[in-house]
Design a protein around this nucleic acid. Structure first.
Length: 423
RNA sequence: GGAGAGUUGGCAGAGUGGUCGAAUGCGGUGGUCUUGAAAACCAUUGAUCCUUCACGGGAUCCAAGGGUUCGAAUCCCUUAUUCUCCGCCA
């Protein structure tokens, strides 16, 4: 969330910038500042009341130890009243703080100056495109047909056992998954990331820390009996490692990578673009997360962008990079690059990765800080990106590499798959 | 799942109702000494919030939340979590 002081000092700017995200903050910002004023004044009165009570309590202690019982009892009457008053003030303060917090978590992150205006993905800014479009043979078919032709992914079986969007991968399909995961992890290790295997369920505090709660509550699977959420991305557990942590400047950059299954309810997204692997409830992803010094986070974002580009290059997939417009930018992000791979049989671009700088938005929620040179606590910056998400990569690989003889595996992957063709 | 014992500052660890934000050790930082380093010695060393131009003053925090009390790290309740034993189990 945004820092209170920042909102106070840059009220007009906040309103103006959030408008790029199509968020009208004009009313809520005033409410927030007003609540904060109330919070301050209430705390001042409460502190003074408690201070007085503390003084009297000490006096009573002294009087008891010197045997002046009666005098002590007189003072007790006063402390009783102070106590009552303090309790009321405390209640009020709690209410105000809760109210304030409720409003604060509703404010999205402020977009970076480079973020273009716009409402939908049509307004995203194309910043890079590379790779040659595959020329498919006449009988080329989309990946869901290839999947059943070669018996490598079974969507119907998934529906039987679980439900739509939970496919089985089988034979070379399963081995291709495993190969991609290992390939992505190894590539990240080459770049000095530390590998983690995170829990797949998280508590509500973690959900708030990275911003899935309360914004995306309905998009996560929820295990009610234990009050836990299935992770929509490894970003959540991996970033929350640093919740309530104070780092040292020399700790930067922190570079973590994790493979995990991801679970998304995708409530409300029906109709087109959900066939086959295009949109699943459970999918696999390798995620890279960095914690960085505020001054270096945008430099780091570019590096992460290059790393992801390199993966797609090695997989020989034609791809393009877009800078998300305000309307397409997520609640928590300040700047996001989306990577899209061309899926030749579907004749469309599929999003395979998002890499984002959250600046201190998540860090503020998580209280993720570092000590600066002057010994003061400052909020760190968090970044993450998919490197990469499997299903659409698999879709593109199957479609783009199909031949009359079968589907050929790109050279970089063969040492992982240990086969060259799916046939 | 059952029984018992824990949870204190970066770490280890004392503290069982007032003088405790908390002994001591280690670690960190600064300094003395040294050609330099180590050792030794000296000093310093938590977070958040309110208030103040500033110096400073104040409040809160001993797993989390609630309670008892004039006063709680210390007593009571709830929850989380760790360890040991038993049970179950991949």
């Amino acid at each position: 969330m945004l820092q209170l002081n920042y909102i106070r000092e840059n009220k007009e700017l906040v309103i103006e910038r959030l408008a790029i995200k199509n968020f009208d903050a004009s009313i809520i910002v005033d409410e927030i500042i007003e609540l904060d004023n109330l919070r301050k004044s209430t705390q001042t009165v409460l502190d003074n009341t408690l201070s007085e009570g503390n003084k009297l309590a000490k006096e009573i202690g002294k009087l008891y130890s010197t045997g002046q019982r009666e005098k002590a009892d007189e003072i007790k009457v006063q402390t009783g009243e102070l106590k009552k008053k303090a309790k009321e003030l405390e209640q009020k303060l709690n209410d105000v703080v809760a109210n304030l917090n409720e409003k604060l978590v509703e404010l999205p992150n402020i977009p970076h100056p480079s973020v273009p205006k716009g409402n939908t993905d049509a307004d995203n800014e194309l910043i890079h495109e590379e790779g040659s479009m595959p020329q498919l043979h006449e009988n080329a078919i989309p990946h869901w047909e290839l999947a059943s032709k070669y018996s490598i992914i079974d969507f119907d079986l998934g529906s039987k056992v679980t439900g739509a969007g939970f496919p089985f991968y089988r034979g070379k399909g399963a081995r291709l998954q495993r190969a991609l995961i290992n390939f992505f992890l190894d590539e990240a290790l080459e770049q000095d990331y530390l590998e983690y295997q995170p829990p797949l369920l998280i508590n509500a505090d973690s959900g708030y820390g990275t911003g899935q709660l309360p914004d995306k509550e309905g998009q996560m699977y929820y295990a009610g009996e234990d009050d836990l959420y299935l992770i929509p991305t490894a970003e959540v557990p991996i970033t929350n490692i640093y919740r309530n942590v104070i780092l040292k400047e020399k700790d930067f950059p922190i570079k973590n990578v994790a493979y995990s299954s991801c679970f998304r309810r995708e409530a409300g997204s029906y109709g087109k673009d959900v066939r086959g692997l295009n949109r699943l409830h459970q999918f696999d992803k390798v995620e890279i997360v960095q914690i960085q010094h505020p001054k270096k986070s945008y430099e780091t974002l570019e590096i992460m962008k290059d790393q992801i580009s390199d993966l797609l290059r090695k997989l020989e997939l034609p791809f393009r990079i877009v800078r998300l417009c305000g309307g397409d930018l997520s609640f928590t992000s300040a700047l996001t690059y989306d990577f899209e791979v061309y899926s030749a049989a579907q004749k469309m671009w599929l999003e395979v990765s998002s890499v984002s700088n959250f600046e201190n938005f998540q860090a503020n929620r998580m209280k993720l800080r570092y000590k600066d040179e002057g010994g003061k606590s400052q909020l760190a910056h968090t970044l993450n990106g998919s490197a990469l998400a499997l299903p659409r990569i698999v879709a593109a690989l199957l479609e783009n590499n199909q031949t009359e003889e079968g589907i050929s595996i790109p050279a970089a992957l063969r040492e992982y798959t240990k086969f060259d063709m799916i046939n």
